[in-house]
Design a binder for these strands. Sequence first.
DNA 1: GCTTGACCCTCCACCCACTGAAACGTTTAC
DNA 2: GTAAACGTTTCAGTGGGTGGAGGGTCAAGC
Lengths: 131, 131
Amino acid sequence: MNIGDVSIRSGLPVKTIRYYEDIGLVSPLRSENGYRTFQEKELHKLSFLARARSLGFTIEVCRTLLGLYDDHSRESSDVKRIANEHLEQIETKISGLETMRAALSHLIDECAGDHRPDCPILEDLGGISEH
Amino acid sequence: MNIGDVSIRSGLPVKTIRYYEDIGLVSPLRSENGYRTFQEKELHKLSFLARARSLGFTIEVCRTLLGLYDDHSRESSDVKRIANEHLEQIETKISGLETMRAALSHLIDECAGDHRPDCPILEDLGGISEH
DNA sequence: GCTTGACCCTCCACCCACTGAAACGTTTAC
DNA sequence: GTAAACGTTTCAGTGGGTGGAGGGTCAAGC
């Protein structure tokens, strides 16, 4: 398989696949013309990466997970711990964003949004908080 | 005021303030020894930026908002539109993260997390989805 | 056999919003 | 006088790619 095929089958952009080779996540062979040649195994790795990335795992954690995937003597507790740490980070991000959303939507509700210049949003940003 | 004072009073790291000067968000004067000298107005701008950034506005949007803040003939509808666009982006991010959280916590629940190698998390990433 | 278009290659620069570190000058407190 | 705490510049790096220039290769159609 050439890179275009694995791109379609893994769902990863061609550029991303080259980048993943650069950082040592996959190691496709090369044919005589210099084209990358992917075996099923490499395609499988790329699909693994696509899925793990879509769950928000960082590249470095993906590298670890790939290692655990290949290591048949792993303990599932190791994987679960990594996943739990990541879940916590996701939850932290969500609550940060929810705080932003609450503050912002409150300001938006207060703002008339008409042709006049008076704007509680700018007043808040400017620190004229008198309440 | 020197940069350290405005750092404390605005809540922004010294490095960030220098960076904001670099990209033209603030323009402090310089005293004879080369130190940046901040007027109240510049401090006020930096506090505005700190607050806007904490609400997740990008630097470029902050630049626009600062312009609107200074423009007393602005219309509040312009500000509200920008805020609403940003709110939508926040909500998109939140729902993306919530999708991740759901998928991930489902997998974590399925995983025994013991000394055995069997792990639904890795099975999912590996694409052995047979259900 | 020649052209066209779809592939493929490498290499460099850029995105965002900082942050760290090196190497140095200035001010302040004791 | 000296040490600490401040200030300065400049360069490089972060994460995870993306865009573009400037080429080489391959298959199909004429």
